[in-house]
Simulated assay, not measured.
Amino acid sequence: MNQEINAGYWQQRYQSGQTGWDVGGITTPLKEYFDQLENKDLRILIPGCGNAYEAEYLFLCGFTQVYLVDVAEEPLLNFAHRVPGFPKEQLLHQDFFQMQDKYDLIVEQTFFCALAPELRPAYASKCAELLQPNGKLMGLLFDTVFSSPGPPFGGSREEYKNYFAPYFHFICFNTAHNSIKPRQGKELFMLLQVLSSDSEV
């Protein structure tokens, strides 16, 4: 699936309301992680942001440097309407794989599973490239195989480890203990720190 088709595909999904992955709010594992962050100036990127309830929560909690990126314009427009005070220049309608800036934290929430599986190695590499030294990749991955063709695309923790191991130190990569009920036992909570010469692990 090339990027042009991908963008059109996701735009159509949002416009037609075919967003079964969208639970209508921030999920518990992400909320509890955000709640223990003290530095409100962290540069945070949420790729494939969709309706971005995570960004809304962070913004309302006082985080000022939250950036959303999506190839589909519709969810960005929805977010701008829902959270009118959010800085418009931090809503990025572009391809994650073409980004060049640097961030302290990347938040993964249903973007990885939306990508064609052959893009997973490139995703891991790009996340590492976009992170500052000691930066972290945090979020949730589906630890299950779906019965119907994707997206979403599932997988296993063993598979995922192979993608991230060349670039990251694994702080946490375990079954999420606080998933929402429909996803209990089917999610991995991931907290990875980018490998760099001055990493403190």
Score class of each variant (00 low, 15 high):
V71G: 03
E74G: 00
G62V: 07
P149W: 04
C61V: 00
I180F: 13
L195G: 02
N134W: 03
C61E: 15
Q184D: 06
Y9C: 01
L30H: 03
D104Y: 07
V69L: 10
F142R: 00
N2P: 11
D95M: 08
F170C: 01
I44P: 01
F86Q: 02
F173H: 00
S147W: 02
D70R: 05
N174T: 13
L140C: 05
C172K: 11
L77P: 00
T19R: 10
N51D: 07
A52H: 06
M1Y: 06
E158W: 07
G48V: 09
Q100T: 15
I5E: 13
F146G: 08
L191E: 12
L141W: 00
I46D: 04
F153W: 11
Q12D: 14
G8I: 03
N134Y: 03
P87G: 08
P75R: 12
Y53W: 15
V23Q: 12
N6T: 13
N78A: 14
K186Q: 15
C113T: 15
C49E: 06
K136E: 15
Y163Q: 06
L195F: 05
I26W: 04
F168D: 01
D104E: 13
Y123P: 08
S16V: 08
D101E: 15
F170V: 01
T64A: 15
C113W: 02
G50R: 02
E158Y: 11
L141E: 00
V66T: 10
L192T: 01
L192F: 07
I106N: 06
Q132L: 10
F153K: 06
F153H: 12
Q65L: 04
S148V: 09
S156K: 12
N178I: 09
L58H: 03
L137W: 04
K126V: 09
N134L: 09
Y163L: 12
